[in-house]
């Protein structure tokens, strides 16, 4: 792609809308994953007693529930991303490429 065409794409409002929305969305999800995971790691490092506490009258500890929770959370996040990308970003990309095609 040569310089002139590039400027045309970069200043295209649809292109700007797509990349702004998508990067905000994917960085938010990435941040959520980082917070969940390193939050869990910091609890393991600093709050062993908290993770050892029992959730009910049985033996199951909060740590096990939270740990399995992080696993489920990771998968849910990927699901949310794919759902939004399929339903929202793909149509935006398609419209954009159609518009840019000479």
């Amino acid at each position: 792609m040569i310089g002139h065409d590039q400027d045309r794409v970069l200043s295209n409002p649809r292109f700007r809308e797509l990349v702004q929305q998508r990067s905000a969305f994917s960085w938010t999800l990435a941040a959520a994953m980082l917070v969940a995971y390193f939050g869990f790691i910091l609890l393991v490092a600093f709050a062993k007693g908290f993770l050892a506490s029992k959730i009910g009258s049985g033996v199951t500890s909060l740590g096990i529930v939270l740990g399995l929770g992080v696993i489920v959370f990771s998968f849910l996040l990927t699901g949310i991303y794919v759902w939004r990308a399929n339903g929202h970003f793909d149509p935006l990309t398609r419209n954009l490429t159609k518009e840019l095609r000479p």
């Binding site: 994917s26 990435a30 995971y37 740990g67 991303y81």
Partner: peptide, 21 residues
């Protein structure tokens, strides 16, 4: 017991990052 979970989670959480970025 629980300690095994720390590794499992570590091996998993890279995948969402791969997907998003």
């Amino acid at each position: 017991g629980f300690d095994g979970l720390i590794y499992s989670i570590g091996f998993l959480v890279g995948w969402p990052i791969v997907l998003f970025l």
